[in-house]
Structures are given as C-alpha cells and as structure tokens.
Amino acid sequence: MKMTIARFDPETGEESRYETFDLPELDRATVLQGLMYVYDNVDSTLGFSFNCRYKNCGLCGLTIDGRPHLACLTPLVDGTVVEPLHNLPVLRDLIIDRRDLFAALRTLTAFIPEPADSNCDAVIHEPAERAVYMQCVECLVCMASCPEYQHGDSAFAGPMVFVKLMQLHLDPRDAANRREQARQLGVEICLECAGCACPSNIPIRKGAIAGLLATDNR
C-alpha cells in the first residue's frame, strides 16, 4: 500500500513537498507503524515524533488525510496522506516545535500555589467532573483543529490552554481566578464555535469552555 508524507527542510526553507512510499501489507497497521516502517527500511532522514507507541504520551499528533489525530491510534489505509499538525510551527517534516509550551506555563501561571503546610492528611474534595479534563495528553490536536488559533497570536490562547485552565479551576487548591484569566485569553471567541477535536474525548467546548464562561459559583 501507499503512504504519502509531507517533507519540509528548514535549511532550504522551501515549501513542503510530498513524497509517496510503498509499504507492505501489515496486520491492522497504524499511521505511526507506517512511519516507523519508512524510517527503519527506506529513509531514516524522515523527521517525526513519538515516545510511548500507544496513546499515553501525546507526542505523535499529525494531520492525517486532512484531519488531526494521534498517529498511534489511526489505522493506516492505502493512500493515507500525513502532514504536520496545522496552526503550529514546523521544525522538520512532521515535527512541530513544542518548546514554547514550557515557557507558556510560567506566563499562564499554570500551576497551583506552593502550599504552606499541606500534607497527605489534608482534606480535599475533588469535583468529580475534573477527572475527564485530566485525560488531556497535550497532543495539540485541539489546537490544530481550531479554526481560530494561530501560533503566536496573543489575543487567543487556544483550546488546549482552556482545558488546562479548567483543570486548575476545578482544583480545590488553586487560588487564581481562572475564568477571568480565560476571558483575557480570548475564550469568548469560542462561544459560536465547536470546531476543536480531542482524541481523548474531552468535551472541550461543552465542558471546559462552557465551564470557564459560566458565571455561577462553581
């Protein structure tokens, strides 16, 4: 079967070109397996990211036949076309640049305050709904599927940031006003849109964003 892969070389800076590879028939092959096959057997200059091989790490997000998804969970079919995630800077071939994400944690204060005297005996009531948001593997598929998000746009932080803020909003130990923060980061833009996808089935628009836009006391 055939697999077409977008290639980009930062050192020439030329537009991506598309290269098609012939692969043998593989038992229930995934897109990630196809990429590893090409890398191992045909062309080991191919750049792509993965770490855990099966749905836990969030590093293998790609645009697959036009839609963003995790490569390890997507079946490979004859004629599959893979490109890097959209809306994000590309380093080489299918590798996107994630290095801004750590710096953003500091800008966003995306952490709980250091507790003065907490210990494991602290009484904490975690809202049950928080569990679903903790499934986020930070794969950036939501950012790539978002019609509004563009990397570097300071007026709109993008859906993954709102999921993170919702995680913190529902953490009883967090002190910051995450709803106000979300408004400053443009969450209201999401009011008329539900374009974001999530491989972990997190209800981003109906759950996280709705929760951040709500005005109740929860």
Partner: peptide, 25 residues
C-alpha cells in the same frame, strides 16, 4: 488519581515552571 501518569507528567512540568528551573528541552 484521575488522569493517571499524564497527570503526573503535567504536574512535573508545572513544578519546574513554578520553581524557576532552567528547563532545556
């Protein structure tokens, strides 16, 4: 806890950011 390992991974990144560790990825 909810989120299992990925929740720990997120917490590790958060702790580095909060404490001012110079992270070189």
């Amino acid at each position: 806890g909810s989120g299992r390992g990925v929740h720990i991974g997120v917490s590790l990144r958060a702790a580095c950011a909060r404490e001012g560790v110079s992270v070189i990825e």
